[in-house]
Simulated assay, not measured.
Amino acid sequence: MKSWFSWLPMTMFLAVIWVLLADMPLGMGTLAFAGAASLIIVLMSRRLRPFLARPRRIWVILKLAGIVLADTFQSNVAAVKIILGYPKIEYTPGFVSVPLTLRDPHGLAILAAIINYAPGTLWAGFPESGEYVQLHILDLPQETDWAAFITERYEKPLKEIFE
């Protein structure tokens, strides 16, 4: 029974997006087409996903979302200061390798998105071994600080959620 309902949230989400984006009057025809089209898309795309994510610990997810929002805001402010040159700040761009213990592909995808959300940081490389991730940092005062920052603030909660 669980497998039948695993596709329902995405189907409903796609149907709502279709109705909101369609430049048509809201009626039974629009709703029927949105529902049918989204159901077909979801059922056909299930074969593209070898396995589904199984996130756990909703409180850790909410805490991580708050941390990401705060860090992204702080990073935006720092990037604007660097770009506008206020005050005259010397910055040193560089690359840093962060060792990873996270192995879940969904967790790694979210980690990549989190790192790329903040201006000034970029996911620059990921070897097949998955032992580390290479990041480009706009202002890199010390490598060890960044590795510990990424590991403690992002990787640790993602391991709790996905592993």
Results as ranks from 00 to 15, higher is better:
Met1Trp: 07
Lys2Gly: 08
Trp4Phe: 12
Phe5Asn: 09
Phe5Gly: 09
Ser6His: 08
Trp7Arg: 14
Trp7Lys: 14
Met10Asp: 00
Thr11Cys: 08
Thr11Val: 05
Ala15Phe: 08
Trp18Lys: 03
Val19His: 06
Val19Gly: 08
Val19Ala: 09
Leu20Val: 11
Leu20Glu: 06
Leu20Ser: 07
Leu21Ile: 13
Leu21Glu: 06
Leu21Phe: 11
Ala22Tyr: 06
Asp23Ile: 03
Met24Pro: 00
Pro25Arg: 12
Pro25Ser: 12
Leu26Ile: 15
Leu26Gln: 10
Thr30Glu: 14
Thr30Asp: 05
Thr30Trp: 10
Ala32Val: 14
Phe33Trp: 14
Ala34Pro: 14
Ala36Thr: 11
Leu39Cys: 12
Leu39Met: 14
Leu43Gly: 08
Arg46Val: 12
Arg47Asn: 13
Arg47Thr: 15
Arg47Ile: 11
Leu48Tyr: 11
Arg49His: 03
Arg49Glu: 06
Phe51Asp: 13
Leu52Ser: 15
Leu52Gln: 15
Ala53His: 04
Arg54Pro: 10
Pro55Trp: 02
Pro55Gln: 04
Arg56Val: 02
Arg56Tyr: 00
Arg57Thr: 08
Val60Glu: 09
Val60Tyr: 00
Ile61Tyr: 02
Lys63Met: 07
Leu64Arg: 02
Leu64Val: 04
Leu64Ile: 06
Ala65Tyr: 07
Ile67Trp: 06
Ile67Glu: 08
Leu69Arg: 10
Gln74Ile: 00
Ala78Trp: 03
Ala79Thr: 15
Val80Asn: 13
Lys81Trp: 12
Ile82Asp: 12
Ile83Thr: 12
Gly85Arg: 14
Tyr86Leu: 10
Lys88Leu: 11
Thr92Pro: 01
Thr92Ala: 07
Gly94Lys: 01
Phe95Pro: 02
Val96Glu: 01
Ser97Trp: 02
Ser97Val: 03
Ser97Asn: 10
Val98Asp: 00
Val98Gln: 02
Pro99Val: 00
Leu102Phe: 01
Pro105Ala: 00
His106Met: 01
Gly107His: 04
Leu108His: 06
Leu108Val: 11
Leu108Ser: 08
Leu108Cys: 08
Leu108Ala: 05
Leu108Lys: 14
Ala109Cys: 07
Ala109Leu: 11
Ala109Tyr: 03
Ile110Asp: 02
Ile110Pro: 02
Leu111His: 11
Leu111Val: 09
Ala112Met: 14
Ile114Ala: 06
Ile114Tyr: 04
Ile115Phe: 06
Pro119Asn: 10
Pro119Cys: 09
Thr121Val: 07
Leu122Thr: 15
Trp123Ala: 05
Trp123Lys: 09
Ala124Arg: 03
Ala124Pro: 03
Gly125Thr: 06
Phe126Leu: 04
Phe126Ser: 01
Pro127Gln: 04
Glu128Leu: 04
Gly130Phe: 02
Glu131Gln: 08
Tyr132Gly: 00
Ile137Tyr: 02
Leu138Asp: 07
Leu138Ile: 12
Leu140Phe: 06
Glu143Ser: 09
Trp146Gly: 05
Trp146Gln: 07
Ala148Cys: 13
Phe149Pro: 01
Phe149Gln: 14
Ile150Met: 13
Ile150His: 13
Glu152Ala: 12
Arg153Met: 12
Tyr154Gly: 10
Leu158Phe: 09
Leu158Thr: 07
Lys159Glu: 14
Lys159Cys: 11
Lys159Ser: 13
Ile161Pro: 06
Ile161Asn: 02
Phe162Ser: 00
Phe162Met: 01
Glu163Phe: 01
Glu163Val: 09
